[in-house]
Design a protein around this nucleic acid. Structure first.
Lengths: 164, 164
DNA sequence: TATTGTTATACTCTATAACTATA
DNA sequence: TATAGTTATAGAGTATAACAATA
């Protein structure tokens, strides 16, 4: 799937080790979700690096949100991404330097920075979308249609904190 | 659930914003898993911080694996945690300084460092287990029994990379 | 006073590369 | 030569605190 140039050991080389006892870990949502996330993130980063794109998951999300909601202000982006406003500043700095978005002070409320995609930004998201879908396909194929819908729903239940 | 002392915006304050358009993001496993993981990790860290324990998810996993497999060597721990061996060195350093594990050179193969829990380590894991189960309960309650089993199975499908 | 954005700073997590010692 | 562990270093990702401009 990806070109492995790392020093990481081959994961789950079935014949290699006699399988460790994991105690109560496998029953923990937190444990399983951490491993699954780390696996996907590493694969994704490797994929973008292979194409000399160097985009990270959070940047793709931000670009999509800006394109879908042109004029989005930074504080709203922070809320949507569930990160601090200071984190968004450096994220947008990076996207702006790459020529993918531009900031525009709101004339109504001059505290606000509206975010707008550039033409290059729109083009890049199209490319990143193709890459992302390709990456996703490797994982989606492990699920039947109904299972995928349910999996996404389960993940959303974790994110939504009303029940907590 | 946790004492919020951060500057993060209140997440999902339903009445606050008119809900952004998310484009294709919600259909992405990668997007949903990233958000879900970030939410759980933040809550967990906050919980341990509140108790002045300061343990992170990866450390709990490592401690459980060492207790369940006394004499585990570092390279095996790295493989199980799916991280580089250098990462394990600093992880074990931390646990050793906290008095929870000790290293013991293998006499058979003096390259290997066997990891053994201290009495204090065993005691700490009992405490961390209680904390972890309490933390998990907030999320588990959003799932029926069958759903939880299926959710854990789905997450494992992501982690296992044979199908990729 | 409260909000938006910014800067400065720091901490966690993790990887890579180069090294030592052992096999 | 290959493996286990270590050290040094660096980068991504994120948070906190203090601040300026604006409301």
């Amino acid at each position: 799937m990806t070109s492995k140039k790392t020093t990481l050991p081959p994961p789950e080389d079935a014949a290699a080790a006699p399988a460790l006892r994991q105690g109560f870990l496998p029953k923990l949502i937190g444990y399983q979700i951490r491993r699954a996330h780390a696996r996907m993130r590493r694969d994704f980063n490797q994929s973008t690096a292979d194409l000399h794109l160097g985009f990270r998951p959070g940047e793709v999300s931000a670009m999509v949100l800006i394109i879908e909601n042109p004029g989005l202000i930074q504080i709203e982006l922070a809320r949507e991404l569930d990160v601090d406003k200071a984190t968004v500043v450096s994220l947008v700095d990076h996207l702006e330097k790459a020529g993918l978005v531009r900031r525009q002070r709101s004339t109504k409320d001059r505290r606000k920075q509206a975010l707008l995609p550039t033409r290059e930004g729109v083009r890049m998201v199209q490319e990143l979308r193709r890459l992302t879908e390709e990456h996703e396909a490797h994982y989606r194929q492990r699920f039947k249609d109904g299972e995928l819908r349910q999996f996404l729903d389960f993940l959303q239940r974790i994110y939504q904190n009303d029940g907590a």
